[in-house]
Write a protein that binds this DNA or RNA. Sequence first.
DNA 1: GAAAACTGTTCAGCCCATACGCTGTTTCTC
DNA 2: GAGAAACAGCGTATGGGCTGAACAGTTTTC
Lengths: 241, 241
Amino acid sequence: MEGMTEDRGELPPGLALSWGVQPVQRRGPKPALSVEQIVATGIGFGDSHGFEAVSLQRIAARLGVSTNAMYRYVRSKDELIVLVQDKAFGPPPELPSGWREAATAWVHAQVDRYAERPWLLDIPIRGAPVTPNQLRWVEVMLAALDSTGLSQHDNLGCLVILNGYARNHASLVRQLEASDNTPVQAEQVGRFLVPRLIEGGYPMMTALYTNQEYEDGVDDDLEFGLTRILDGIEVLINRKS
Amino acid sequence: MEGMTEDRGELPPGLALSWGVQPVQRRGPKPALSVEQIVATGIGFGDSHGFEAVSLQRIAARLGVSTNAMYRYVRSKDELIVLVQDKAFGPPPELPSGWREAATAWVHAQVDRYAERPWLLDIPIRGAPVTPNQLRWVEVMLAALDSTGLSQHDNLGCLVILNGYARNHASLVRQLEASDNTPVQAEQVGRFLVPRLIEGGYPMMTALYTNQEYEDGVDDDLEFGLTRILDGIEVLINRKS
DNA sequence: GAAAACTGTTCAGCCCATACGCTGTTTCTC
DNA sequence: GAGAAACAGCGTATGGGCTGAACAGTTTTC
């Protein structure tokens, strides 16, 4: 490809870089760093100390470079985050045949990714996915849904539901893992809350809390919700045929 | 209630204050501010300038007080955010009878709330809901699902799906509103992306982009996903009876 | 060899949350 | 009524973050 230097003036942050399009340099000293190196370091910090730890300062310090040197490689922190997100999430797995099996595997894979790197859940969603790995996830799921006979529009709708459910579930699991670590505190919360629930007219919540079902009932029951959603999609498929 | 001064030592941030439990003060000057006032000011900034704008500095400045005076009312920013979140989201509406109608109204109401105050989507979810309004939302939905004959556990599972879908959908709508404002940029993204999709082996994505269906197909189709989910739940209900 | 382009650096500005110590005010207790 | 205790808000200070501008050094091109 010759026109690799196309002007990326108004493209959203991270788009060009995530596809490996970098401004070709002709003169001047060789860069001491590379975008890949910077992104990898950012992921390292995310893995070890969470999303808040992936900052330009820290990455620069780790790489033995001044903070502002980062701006020779990345236009803004936002751009860096987009790159980190795409790289850290990685590509999707191969999906089994059969839309139901494929969807199940797809959701499981996403949940697993989030389990490996929970800090990815802290990255705010900027817009429609445009980076290579993100689009690959969409691609494989759409391919799997192609056999359902639904319209492109409906397939996309199903994908959005499944994706949202995966992310939502991963987020829930993460919360539970974080709060279940302190059963002492959970019990103290209950002692504070229950009288107020009774007095405030929260019968269902009271039952939940006194049944010990809360904080416990919302276990990592991925299959339950997934089955509901898949059943709902299946109803639609059967109706159309 | 006499024991209002129970020690709230180890309770999570915002729990006590959100339920109106404040340390009773006996001596010293009267506070110039109130927690309600602070929270209301925070919500004001959120409404006018987004979540990032709700900072202790700004609130303090607006109220004509030094930044650190805030810490006489709130233990940390986290605590403030919890209070702001609960107050800004507000209480749920009355739900119609019939679990399906109720769930539909519940999801719609949540989406509407997020449409009114999109910045609420930027608040990270800390843990299981414990504040009065949040719990009220759970309460009314559980009450509506009580007639399904499902177990408490299953009802909670359904609620989680619906809640996740509502939040996810609101988030999508917000993205679209933010990105659709610049059709010029969207077209430029397409020009950058399509050749790479073709070359990179993204047939479904290519079709989507060339069909103009992307950025457009994910419209605010709340009903589509909701119908799938409700159908899926209905399958479960019918199976159990 | 000179000019252009590009590197990383330092300096600087502005934002944020938070800790500490001070002064003045209010109220309880003796 | 006087002193002590408790509490308000303030100023100062620390540490972290993102980003812009000016600058000196390096490499390539003309």
